[in-house]
Computed example of a mutant assay.
Amino acid sequence: MKDFNVNEDGLYGRFGGAYVPEILYAQVEMLRNEYLKVMNEDSFRAEYRNLLRDYVGRPSPLYPARRLSERYGTKIYLKREDLNHTGAHKINNTIGQILLARQMGKSRIIAETGAGQHGVATATVCALMNMECIVYMGAVDIERQRPNVEKMEMLGARVIPVYSGNKTLKDATNEAIRDWCCHPSDTYYIIGSTVGPHPYPDMVARFQSVISEEIKYQLKEKEGRENPDYVIACVGGGSNAAGAFFHFLHTPAVKLIVAEAAGEGLETDRSAATIHLGREGIIHGARTLVMQTPDGQITEPYSISAGLDYPGIGPMHAFLAEEGRSEVLAVTDDEALSAAFRLTRLEGIIPALESAHALAVLERKKFAPDDIVVVNLSGRGDKDMQTYMREKERMSNV
């Protein structure tokens, strides 16, 4: 069976690696040499697990969605990452990385954010550990995710707006890397997704793997078996999907479905469907699929969802798609919005716009009555209420 984990060279097939400026080489190499050793220490594992339980509120429930199941004629469970402290899966990773940063003697934390959930999660753990926190965020995202900006500032973080490029996630990441180059010795960069140079994609996937670890034993309790038939998750960079898939990667009977953001459609120039539209290239320190022009210039992505508005994809997901281990659907803005409103009315749960892309797969795929389908509900919709209210009015007038 093919191995879908990263190899010793930091590669998933031909994707991954570490393409970093020389000034960052020593920092990335130190992290590469230390992360697995530290993560496997009993004291680290105990502190991490205790914080997930007592601070984050894990395990997150695996909720049997009765009315959603009736609608689609199958058995649907929602993995409720929206119920975590800070409202999304992002905290699973930032808890782990802040402990690593402390172990490595770092005192200054930087991060990038799109939808703001990773920024809030980073600011939260920095407040917990009494560390300086700087978050880079595109000016467009600051406007559409204002509640999360206010949360970050209340937590003590300094939010720096980015005005270059499309003023969204890619540009925020560029600025965070520039900062890191200027302050390599005392700064730790908490990357929020399975992107960036090795070891970040593997490290983030491992911290997020608590999601699939819990799914297995929760499903055993509820259904008498550990493995669902399908696991569905949205991808921007891919951390929530990596976590939901991790313990099923080498179980072929579990089908993995990825929902990426088609924006206004694959045939338009307003999309963020990197797996469908991208070509092999290097972005933010890793070789992966990248949306780019014929001469290699990165094109500006678009999605109504700030967290999926990224022109690359984690190298793990590029490899899973290329090998046929995952099925990739491109979900439009309107499909995601309809799925969000549908879940709200049927189950009384308002999802994040990112998670709504995963929910939209239920309209596109036909499942058998005895299938068990797990949808990773990666975040809650508080941050997206302004968008939802605007789009609800627009859709009602169509």
Score class of each variant (00 low, 15 high):
355 S>Y: 03
43 S>I: 11
155 L>G: 13
184 P>Q: 06
150 E>R: 14
348 G>C: 07
234 C>L: 04
372 I>T: 13
138 G>T: 01
77 Y>W: 08
386 Q>W: 13
376 N>W: 04
176 A>Q: 04
94 T>N: 09
100 L>A: 01
390 R>W: 06
361 V>S: 07
163 Y>H: 14
388 Y>F: 14
145 Q>I: 03
110 I>E: 05
105 G>R: 04
81 E>K: 00
298 I>A: 13
68 L>Q: 00
63 Y>L: 09
108 R>T: 08
231 V>W: 14
33 N>S: 14
379 G>S: 05
58 R>D: 05
52 L>E: 08
96 G>Q: 10
52 L>D: 01
394 R>G: 02
225 R>W: 03
106 K>Y: 04
172 A>H: 07
96 G>Y: 08
94 T>H: 10
278 G>K: 05
307 G>E: 09
293 T>R: 11
10 G>Y: 12
202 D>C: 12
298 I>P: 10
164 S>I: 00
96 G>C: 11
231 V>P: 06
102 R>Q: 15
250 H>L: 13
289 L>E: 05
292 Q>G: 00
86 T>D: 08
273 A>T: 06
107 S>H: 13
283 I>K: 06
217 Y>W: 15
305 S>L: 05
65 A>N: 01
306 A>P: 10
370 D>S: 14
276 H>L: 09
334 D>Y: 13
117 Q>F: 11
206 R>D: 09
377 L>N: 02
82 D>P: 07
30 M>A: 11
29 E>D: 15
44 F>V: 10
366 K>A: 12
96 G>M: 13
247 H>L: 00
155 L>N: 05
177 I>E: 01
204 V>P: 12
103 Q>N: 12
279 R>M: 02
170 K>V: 00
241 A>Y: 10
393 E>Q: 13
285 G>A: 00
395 M>Y: 07
166 N>S: 11
103 Q>D: 15
42 D>S: 15
276 H>K: 12
285 G>F: 00
